[in-house]
């Protein structure tokens, strides 16, 4: 599995709503024998911006993040990094990350990642359509004195 694939699904999982992931995760009844390499912990990440959008970086403020790491009984390691304070979600993401490196990858991809990606795309399309509905054209009126 390439770095791009792993990066894509970890990014998808970090951002997806926890109840949605939980529903798919529970439905798949994944085997979950693992040891903690790092128990779930909640912390902050300093988010940076750039001056003028393109210039030098500055510190904007922090966001909450939960992370953990697991090792399956066969030694495969999975990492979970998720937005917000949600230890259960971080655990599920770490397990999924580990399973994606095993022969269960196809099943996990089909039953969890693909539906999550589809729902995220639909949600985004709904929101951009709403925004597009508020697109305006301003006409400059000719002023009397001109």
């Amino acid at each position: 599995m390439g770095i791009e694939t792993r990066k894509t699904y970890l990014s998808l999982l970090a951002k997806c709503p926890a109840p949605r992931l939980d529903g798919l995760f529970q439905a798949l009844a994944l085997k979950r024998d693992f040891d903690w390499l790092r128990v779930p912990e909640i912390g902050g990440v300093m988010v940076r911006g750039r001056m003028g959008g393109t210039g030098a970086p500055f510190n904007l403020g922090e966001m909450t993040v939960t992370r953990c790491a697991v090792r399956l009984s066969d030694g495969v390691v999975g990492h979970g990094y998720v937005q917000g304070r949600d230890k259960a979600k971080a655990e599920q993401v770490a397990i999924i990350d580990a399973l994606m490196q095993t022969d269960q990858a196809t099943g996990v991809d089909e039953m969890i990642l693909t539906p999550l990606a589809k729902m995220a795309a639909e949600e985004r399309a709904r929101r951009t359509a709403k925004a597009a509905g508020t697109k305006v054209d301003f006409f400059t009126m000719v002023r009397g004195e001109d």
Binding site: E41, I42, G43, G44, V45, M46, V47, R48, G49, R50, G53, T54, P57, N59, L60, E62, T64, V65, R67, R124, R127, T128, A131
Partner: peptide, 17 residues
């Protein structure tokens, strides 16, 4: 909160507006 690190600067040109 323990500080896990700092993000890459956000790319506002890539914002979904």
């Amino acid at each position: 909160l323990p500080r896990f690190g700092a993000s890459a600067p956000v790319d506002t040109a890539d914002m979904i507006c």
